[in-house]
């Protein structure tokens, strides 16, 4: 365990910072300045950057965020939902090594050149392969860390969870609970991205604009969700676009209750986790009250709800009926 933490939280990050800095320091005098940083499909240079610029860009966009993710998932691996820590560590290592290897390969391949336009296109496949290997390695190492998600355990047994009582429901009676939940900042983000897409379509590259418009969809989908609880179980849908986040049959539900949802302990917003793979999943739109379902086969599902008590009582009634 100690070795794992040491490699993931110290050696890998240190190496990804040290390698590019050392490479540039070592070859600085032999390198053209600016260096070539972008190539056409046919291999001719169409972009350049100063050495410092390349170092800062790779550091700010890849290496440092990657290291943050890697260290974070290593240090807090026990507090993250099952499955998300190895994934985060893998992604973090991938990004960090990718950024680092891009700088190193640039320095190695372009040394001795008079001007950057002479540069051949780099061995980008090799760079990606190195990053992938590092990512997989970090993910595997992270998997060996002990898994004891304190947040999930406290969901299970802590005082935050109150098992709701059941309610009166006759044999011929049917009840349906529906809550529509809006998260204004998500809707605002979706709207902003969408408008940026529209502006780009009109004034800029159409493809980029369309991609921007499409990328507004996840925020829009999550910005207004509708949870319906009835004799069939629980369904979580987007209220804005025809998308179903989750459907949990009544037969799979053992009991329901209220919890306090902290997005950080579920790994962020959106559909977190996986019932099939990890046995734990949640639809998280915000922090605050939510409903927790204990499912068969020791699985757990949660969804943020302003009124978790009413549907919990309804479910507990339906389950025992």
């Amino acid at each position: 365990m100690k070795t794992t933490r040491f490699i993931n939280a110290a050696i890998l990050p240190a190496a990804t910072i040290a390698a590019p800095v050392l490479a540039i320091a070592r070859f600085r005098d032999e390198l053209p300045d600016p260096v070539a940083t972008h190539w056409n499909l046919d291999g001719t240079v169409d972009g350049s950057m100063s050495l410092t610029g390349l170092l800062l860009t790779a550091g700010a966009t890849l290496v440092l965020p990657g290291i943050a993710l890697l260290v974070g998932t290593t240090v807090w691996s026990h507090r993250l939902p099952r499955g998300s820590a190895p994934f985060g560590a893998g992604l973090g290592a991938f990004l960090a090594v990718l950024g680092s290897a891009i700088v190193v390969s640039t320095a190695v391949e372009q040394r001795g050149l008079a001007t950057y336009t002479d540069a051949d296109s780099p061995a980008i496949l090799l760079v990606i392969a190195a990053a992938t290997v590092a990512g997989l390695g970090a993910a595997l190492l992270n998997r060996s860390l002990p898994y004891a998600p304190s947040s999930l355990t406290s969901h299970r047994s802590g005082p935050a969870f109150s098992s709701a009582e059941s309610m009166e429901l006759g044999d011929a009676e049917r009840m349906v609970f529906v809550e529509t939940q809006s998260v204004n900042w998500l809707l605002a983000v979706a709207m902003a991205i969408f408008l940026a897409g529209v502006v780009t379509v009109v004034f800029g590259p159409i493809l980029v604009g369309v991609i921007l418009m499409l990328s507004a969809l996840p925020a829009a989908a999550l910005g207004r969700i509708r949870v319906q609880v009835d004799r069939n179980g629980v369904v979580v849908r987007s209220a804005l676009i025809p998308l179903r986040f989750a459907k949990i049959g009544l037969a799979d539900i053992e009991s329901a209750g209220a919890i306090d949802v902290n997005p950080m302990s579920w790994g962020g917003w959106g559909y977190r986790g996986s019932l099939r793979v990890a046995g734990t999943a949640a639809v998280v739109t915000r922090g605050g009250p939510g409903m927790r379902l204990d499912l068969t086969k020791d699985r757990l599902f949660a969804v943020t709800l302003d009124d978790p008590d009413t549907p919990s009582r309804l479910l507990n009634t339906l389950v025992t009926a």
């Binding site: 006759g170 011929a172 009676e173 049917r174 009840m175 349906v176 609970f177 529906v178 809550e179 009413t310 309804l314």
Partner: peptide, 8 residues
Amino acid sequence: MLLRVDHE
């Protein structure tokens, strides 16, 4: 919203 109907 909580809807309730009694079929009988």
